[in-house]
Simulated assay, not measured.
Amino acid sequence: MIKRLLSYFYPIKIYSQKSALSQSIEITWANGDLVMDSLNTNYSYGSLQRILKLGLKNIGFAKIKKMESILILGVAGGSVIKTLVDDIQFSGKITGVEIDAEMIKIANQYFKLDKIPQLNIVIDDAFEFVLKTKDKYDLIIVDIFQDTKMPNFLFESFFIDRICFLLKSKGFILFNTMLLSPEENLRNQKLINEFKTEYFSIKTIPRVEIHNELIVIEKLD
């Protein structure tokens, strides 16, 4: 409790760990809340939770609450899961895919993800998972970073086409991206310009928390 109170004045790091896949995973008390950070950016809770919550609000909390199944690619500490369960009261099935098993161990310890009954965590590469799964989803959240970098496969047409295929009718994709260079701005613009819109609509929520841009895709039929 003392550390939590002191964190309103300055951040207090309580855990730091390197895993085989992540340079650094840190748990810190900041402004009264526990947050998970990488070396250079927020991974869960903190600014990331605000970013994804804004995207969920754009889709509509009431609409999400009625959904049956949600897929999250990139779990980290699970802040978006907490938003779904605590703020939206989503009671359907949540599947979270995370490549780093150490990240999930830490999330269970500090954020109690393993206490959420409708959550199924799959330790797998997101690209491999979307190729293998036979399930379809009402909402797919893509939130995959390696520190401040995003894997190239996320922007390849095959991956985008595949996650669109996994959407149920009237489903949504919420894609969190980070823009730190002119090249990354062009990357996002290319994806949007080349997106096939016959059966989908696509829009952006730009410059969330300065460096993030959310892309929202809706399946129309």
Rank of each mutant, 00 (worst) to 15 (best):
T41A: 13
N42C: 15
Y43M: 14
S44F: 05
S44G: 09
Y45W: 09
Y45F: 15
L48F: 06
I51E: 01
I51A: 12
I51P: 02
L52G: 03
L52N: 08
L52D: 03
K53L: 08
K53V: 04
G55P: 09
G55D: 07
I59V: 15
F61L: 03
A62F: 00
A62Q: 11
I64Y: 04
K65P: 07
M67G: 03
M67Y: 11
S69F: 00
I70E: 10
I70Q: 09
I72W: 08
I72F: 07
L73E: 09
L73H: 11
V75P: 03
A76F: 08
G77R: 07
S79V: 02
S79Y: 02
V80L: 15
V80R: 02
K82V: 00
K82I: 00
D86A: 04
D87V: 02
I88V: 14
I88Q: 08
Q89N: 15
F90M: 08
F90G: 07
G92A: 03
G92R: 00
I94D: 07
G96W: 01
E98I: 01
I99A: 06
F111K: 10
F111S: 12
F111N: 11
F111H: 11
K112Y: 12
K112H: 15
L113M: 12
Q118H: 09
N120L: 00
N120G: 00
I121W: 08
V122H: 01
A126M: 01
V130A: 04
K132F: 03
K134T: 13
D135T: 00
K136W: 00
D138S: 05
L139W: 08
D143K: 07
I144L: 12
P151A: 07
